[in-house]
Every structure is written in structure tokens, then in C-alpha cells.
């Protein structure tokens, strides 16, 4: 019960063996991940309820997202998960150089992920594709420059912003008649993704277009909260990196690296679900 003379420095006083401490730490981390899962579970519930009841909103909304950027980010995050797993492996084997290298690589991939996210966000913000009452989509985007956005305080019967000479690929739908009071919105067909125009199921598409701000609410909150978790994970990885550089870890003590890894993989798993749910809607 009392402090054994061989009590290792990393073993807290109230644990009897390193193994007890290790398992407690692991269980604690898994429980923490449970709270994260339920935190995101609320968001997935929000998503599921709206998608089940208003699928047309999602059909209309996802066209503004860039599949290739989303796919790129998925791969970046998977690779970062691999490097994190390799970092844990290096820590288990006591290979400090490899540990530092893999942690640094994970950190860089995370930066890369955020960089792509920044590009995506800035496109959306520039095009006014913001949630709720901030949803003020630019009429269209041309190669030469932007058409001015209709001012937010325009009276309801104000004419829509003048349409530029048709920059969309042939087959882009004509704005439906009487669309002046609906949000003035045309998919950014000339955007990076060069998506096919919406299908001709006009009624559903029109209803979806009217409520597409709901999609961007979900998009920004879900990816935003995920992005915050990426940033938190980066802080953890940086902390692990500096501890590893000071030689804090050894083949008999690498619990923090393992726990950081668990957290990072969960961030990856959540993105694995976000990607098809937000970008790949059929």
C-alpha cells in the first residue's frame, strides 16, 4: 500500500502498478471519446431529421460543395491517421526519432486539412452561401469578376441582380418564373467543381433551393465543430511532440501518445462520416 521504492516517476501515487494506471487512462480516454461521439451525435441527429424530411434541401445544397476538395481532405486526414498510428508504434518501440518525425508529419497533414478547409470556407463566404438569415448568395460568379450581391435591405419586390452573359454550361436551368421573391440563387456552375446542372425535377429542386440556407447551417456547424476538434488535436500533437523531444516517453511509458492517437483517430472517423453525408448526396 505504501510507496514502493521502485515506484516509477510517471506512476501517480494512487495507482499500484503501471498497468493499472495505463488501463485507467485508456478507459478514461474511451469515455471521453464517448462524450465526443454523443456531442457529434446531436449534430448527426439534426442532420438526419432534416435530411429525412427535406431531402430536396440537401440535393440542392450539396451542389455548391466541391467534391474533389472534400475527397482530398478525406485522404489527407486518413494519411494523418496512418502517421499517428505509426507515431504510437514508434513510441511503443522507443524509437524517438521516428516518433518525432511521425508526430510532425501528422501535424503537417492537419495543417494541410485546415488549409483546404480555409479555401472552401472562403469560397462559400465570398459567394454569400452562409446559413440562416445571412444567406445572401451572389447571383453568379464569372471568370472576370463578381456580379454585385443584391443588398440585404433591398425591398422584397426589388428586381434580382442582373444576370451576366450566361457563364454556365449549356443546360443550366433557367430561373423559374416568379423566382424574384425566392432567394436569388444559382448554383455556382462555373465554380471549381464544374458540376452538372440540377436535375429537371423542378418542383423539388425549387423547394430545395428556397430552403438551401438550412443545408449551409448544417454544413458550417458540422464542419466548423469538426475543424475546432482538428485544432484541439493539433495542440495535443504539438504538446506530445515537445514532451517527446524532452525524452518523456519510453517503451514502458507512452500512454499520452496512445491517448492523443485515440483522439486523433476519432476526429478522422467523424470526418469519414461527414464527407459522404455532406459532399456525396445523390
Amino acid at each position: 500500500m505504501s510507496h514502493a521504492p521502485d515506484h516509477p516517476a510517471h506512476l501517480a501515487h494512487h495507482y499500484e502498478t503501471p498497468r493499472q494506471q495505463f488501463e485507467a487512462g485508456k478507459l478514461g480516454m474511451w469515455l471521453f471519446l464517448v462524450t465526443e461521439v454523443l456531442l457529434f451525435g446531436g449534430l448527426f441527429c439534426w442532420y438526419a431529421v432534416y435530411r429525412a424530411n427535406q431531402p430536396e434541401v440537401f440535393l440542392a445544397g450539396h451542389r455548391y460543395l466541391d467534391k474533389s476538395l472534400g475527397g482530398l481532405n478525406t485522404i489527407v486526414l486518413i494519411v494523418s491517421s496512418v502517421t499517428m498510428a505509426l507515431a504510437v508504434r514508434a513510441a511503443q518501440l522507443g524509437n524517438r526519432r521516428a516518433l518525432l518525425g511521425f508526430l510532425a508529419a501528422t501535424f503537417l497533414f492537419a495543417c494541410c486539412f485546415l488549409g483546404v478547409k480555409y479555401v472552401e470556407y472562403s469560397h462559400k463566404i465570398r459567394d454569400g452561401l452562409l446559413p440562416g438569415r445571412h444567406f445572401q448568395p451572389a447571383a453568379e460568379k464569372t471568370g472576370a469578376g463578381r456580379v454585385p450581391v443584391a443588398p440585404a435591405d433591398a425591398p422584397p419586390d426589388a428586381p434580382p441582380a442582373p444576370a451576366p452573359a450566361d457563364p454556365a454550361p449549356a443546360g443550366a436551368p433557367a430561373p423559374p418564373p416568379g423566382a424574384a421573391d425566392a432567394p436569388r440563387l444559382v448554383p455556382s456552375a462555373a465554380g471549381p467543381e464544374g458540376l452538372a446542372p440540377p436535375p429537371t425535377r423542378e418542383v423539388a429542386a425549387e423547394a430545395g433551393r428556397k430552403s438551401v440556407h438550412l443545408f449551409f447551417g448544417i454544413y458550417f456547424v458540422m464542419t466548423g465543430l469538426h475543424g475546432l476538434h482538428v485544432i484541439a488535436g493539433m495542440i495535443v500533437i504539438a504538446w506530445l511532440f515537445f514532451r517527446a523531444r524532452r525524452g518523456a516517453f519510453s517503451p514502458s511509458y507512452w500512454l499520452p501518445v496512445d491517448l492523443g492517437g485515440l483522439y486523433w483517430h476519432l476526429v478522422d472517423v467523424i470526418w469519414i462520416f461527414l464527407f459522404p453525408l455532406l459532399y456525396l448526396i445523390h
Binding site: T35, L39, G41, P131, H134
Partner: peptide, 21 residues
């Protein structure tokens, strides 16, 4: 408890940013 957390976050987001939830 995490579900309360996300509920309150969504409430704040809706109130402050105007996201439709």
C-alpha cells in the same frame, strides 16, 4: 450531458449567427 452541450451550442449559434435550426 454531451447532448445538452450540443443543444446549447446550437441554441447559441442560432441566436447569435442566425442559423436555422
Amino acid at each position: 450531458t454531451p447532448v445538452l452541450g450540443i443543444t446549447l451550442i446550437l441554441l447559441i449559434v442560432e441566436r447569435v449567427v442566425g442559423v436555422g435550426i
